[in-house]
Write a protein that binds this DNA or RNA. Sequence first.
DNA 1: TCCTAATCGATACGAGTGTATCGGATTGCG
DNA 2: CGCAATCCGATACACTCGTATCGATTAGGA
Lengths: 198, 198
Amino acid sequence: MSRGVGRDHETVRGAIAAAACVLVAEEGAGALTVRRVAAAAGVSPGRVQHYFPDRTALMLAAFDSVQHAVAAEVTTAVGEAAAPEQVLTAVLRAMIPTDDTAMRRLRVVAQFESLALTEDILATRIREGHAELLAFLERLLESSRIRLDSNNTEGTLQGLLATAEGLSGQVLLGQSSPDRALALLQTSIDDMFRGVAS
Amino acid sequence: MSRGVGRDHETVRGAIAAAACVLVAEEGAGALTVRRVAAAAGVSPGRVQHYFPDRTALMLAAFDSVQHAVAAEVTTAVGEAAAPEQVLTAVLRAMIPTDDTAMRRLRVVAQFESLALTEDILATRIREGHAELLAFLERLLESSRIRLDSNNTEGTLQGLLATAEGLSGQVLLGQSSPDRALALLQTSIDDMFRGVAS
DNA sequence: TCCTAATCGATACGAGTGTATCGGATTGCG
DNA sequence: CGCAATCCGATACACTCGTATCGATTAGGA
């Protein structure tokens, strides 16, 4: 079934999008090209063109691919945690790249974030994902017995997310080691829980 | 003196680099092109080519241009502050875009940071600038009477810088308003100084 | 004055881009 | 067994890109 109507459309699309992500991770967003992606996926340019009408569709598919990968990563990290504090810690730690695969994934995310400064569609999607994550963590903490001393759960969470994102950027740029970033992140988390009755 | 040897080389170079920054701010790093920059600077492509041997030189000049602009901004912000705590606060607040010009400037910085994930020369320069800023703030706090409770000045500062960078990214992506980001940043700074005898 | 070096506009070339289009291959259905 | 729908490889076209190159212009020293 290498041709014809029997092809599993979504599988092929996903494979091409995944190859596009690898390409972006290694060569930057500028390499997001029909022909380059085709070469990276080991596929003819015509095939890529068949599954994606234009360059924007290819870009959005690649973005969805990383976003789903990140969501899956977060989900498994959450699955292993029990208490709400552990869930929060796991989610935030997942934003710091420690191994090669996480490094690549977060490099792709960083590339798309800078693309989003120009492409409004990407900015919207990133905002939605960010708001979703924030709401999830907010529900998590509010449904538990945890109450933050600042009486401002959303603000504190947003600050924590900003810290994690900043540390992630530092690691990606080689300004900080993953271990150091994780330690600093843990300090911020501990500060947040300080003086809180669980 | 529109031609000939009498031209002020550095002035022309600077003007072209500044125009390149405006272009990057408005259209992203992908617009960093000889012809586009020439058009943005109101200059013939040949002139740009004359002052910059290749695209990399143009990119580095544009990067230096923003870096100097940021340094100047920080310097004036520091000049208005008296106490070391105020200096630190001023530096960190300068990383959050509040008006249009700061917005544009930080957009350019963000674009170059994502470019640095691919271009090693940029990564090196950013690391150097970051280390320099960190060392400056460290000296500032250590030479003053301020001692951090965590007994880990560098780590705390790095965490604070990460928070500011993360908040800056949130503002750039429209996930947070400048005022909100400034408030969250202030909270982080206050937490840092909590329990510290000045 | 004139001549050398700097400046710069214009043009050209090859590579790479997005996209349109065509034709053959393949498959599942009637 | 057709046959229509899908799949996809190939090609073409009009662009933009970086870069090389040439010639004209200009300024300042000899």
